[in-house]
Simulated scan of single mutants.
Amino acid sequence: MSPNDATTLAPQHAGILPGKPQPFYLDNGQGEKSVVFDTLFTILLTGDETDDQYDVFSCEGNAGDIIPAHIHPFTHEIFFVMDGAVHLWMDDEKGFKDDHVLTSGGFGYVPKGTIHAFRMEATSKIMGVSSAGFARFFHAMGRPTDKPGIPSPEEFYIPPFEQMKAAGELYGTVFRPDYNFLED
């Protein structure tokens, strides 16, 4: 069973997306939603609907802490800032090492195998696109919710380390606690 398989979903997420390639619509605030730390991740499209080509998701939150450095050995990832400001750090360990604050309309591409991290510098909403099969990582890391919008402090969810580790193993995310972009 693929980690992208709709049959692995929490009951709250079952039936929101069609689970196969067919036309459909989602209104504002709809999609498969999970809270990870202080951020809402909403999955809009998965490999189930795209013949395993790509996933589409959004994340929205307030200014906060840096998401820890990590790498996806098999997943390409796109950041498109719909609103706000997002600081993106990248190091491909082949000569490209940089950081940039993306504002509304800004775009960043993180190829597979690139160490990266990000931090929302203001209340922000990001549209993400990734290789198929990755987006449900956010469900594995988070807590399902039906509520749209930025979570309030009582809704924050700090996953236990074992949950983070298991999600990373299942969805090809390697956390790099040894790597700190902020010390550069």
Rank of each mutant, 00 (worst) to 15 (best):
T39P: 03
A85C: 07
L45E: 07
N62F: 00
D38S: 14
G105H: 06
D52N: 15
E121M: 15
P160F: 02
Q22H: 04
A122E: 13
F181K: 03
M82N: 10
G105D: 05
E183W: 07
D52P: 01
A10C: 02
D65W: 05
V36T: 02
I43H: 02
S131M: 00
G47M: 01
G142H: 10
K112G: 10
E49Q: 11
D92G: 09
G106F: 12
N28I: 08
C59D: 11
W89H: 13
D65F: 09
K165E: 14
M127I: 10
G64F: 00
G31W: 03
C59N: 11
I115P: 08
T123P: 15
P148Q: 06
K147W: 08
D55T: 06
L170S: 15
Y171D: 01
D38F: 04
V129L: 15
E32A: 12
P153E: 08
K94N: 08
L17C: 07
S104P: 04
M120S: 11
L102W: 05
R176G: 04
I71L: 14
K165I: 07
R136F: 03
M1S: 13
I126L: 13
H76S: 04
Y54Q: 04
G149F: 05
V81S: 08
K20G: 10
M120T: 08
F96V: 14
T173F: 05
P159G: 02
P144H: 00
Y109R: 13
V36Q: 00
T7I: 09
S34E: 06
R119N: 09
K147H: 13
E183P: 07
G142E: 11
F138C: 07
I43S: 04
V56S: 05
F156P: 01
N4Q: 13
I43A: 07
A10Y: 06
F175M: 15
G47C: 03
V101H: 04
G128R: 09
T8N: 11
S152W: 03
A135N: 01
M120V: 11
H13A: 14
I71A: 00
E155L: 07
F57M: 14
P11G: 12
M82W: 08
A122T: 14
I66T: 06
E77M: 13
D146W: 01
K165R: 08
H76F: 08
G105P: 01
